[in-house]
Amino acid sequence: MIKRFTVFLILLALAAIFAQLLFDYVPDSSLNQTGRYYAENAADEVGAANIVTAIIVSYRGLDTLGEVTVLFLTAAIIGLVLSRDRSQQQTAPEAVNRPGPGELLVTGSYLLAPLILLFGAYIFINGHLTPGGGFQGGAILASAILLLLLTRPVKHFSHRLITLLESVSGLVFVIVGVLGIILAGGFLDNRILPTGQLGELLSAGTIPIIYSFIGLKVGAEFSSMLIRLAETEDN
């Protein structure tokens, strides 16, 4: 009781802080210096039509590197934590009799899964042209895997493949970044490949390549996490 009251009081103070921020907030009427720079120059310098992608992959590529690493770490840690447990659990596997998934469910998921995968791939390949990008596409890829996990729980996934995919994608990202230092203006400068025509698929330098790899990587990592979490279920 006291605890709730204390929490309430503290959150009240926090609400006061937020209210203050809210009241002092004056929305912009035009772009500030950073926004304006991006609006004016991103299309020419980077060659990507989706300015947000340009920022993520190129200008603030270091943040993206960190983000990618976050997922890599999380997947590695979950693998570390849950795989140790799995080996402890294998001593007594109990086969629980569960009714299998119905034919409607299985066929439906077989129909949907490739479509979802395709959609996800479309999102990250066209990251520089339309809304979306590697992370979004990767999440969609993982949702396909999730669908399969939910409908066919006995299906076996290769952790080896997923780990390989993760590492290769990560390495490619880092190597492209280093190439940016050697061949172009700085780390993760995307202009080591020609920027091409704005709006074309093969434009914006290395962005499509990087984003595709990121998409694969993110998809692989999310899938890996989901698979591990699913494997923890008592069989």
């Binding site: 310098e45 603030r60 172009a184 400068d189």
Partner: peptide
């Protein structure tokens, strides 16, 4: 000062 992405701050890190 080390720039990244071939642009200068604050537009790049």
């Amino acid at each position: 000062e080390i720039m990244t992405a071939g642009a200068s701050p604050p537009f790049a890190i």
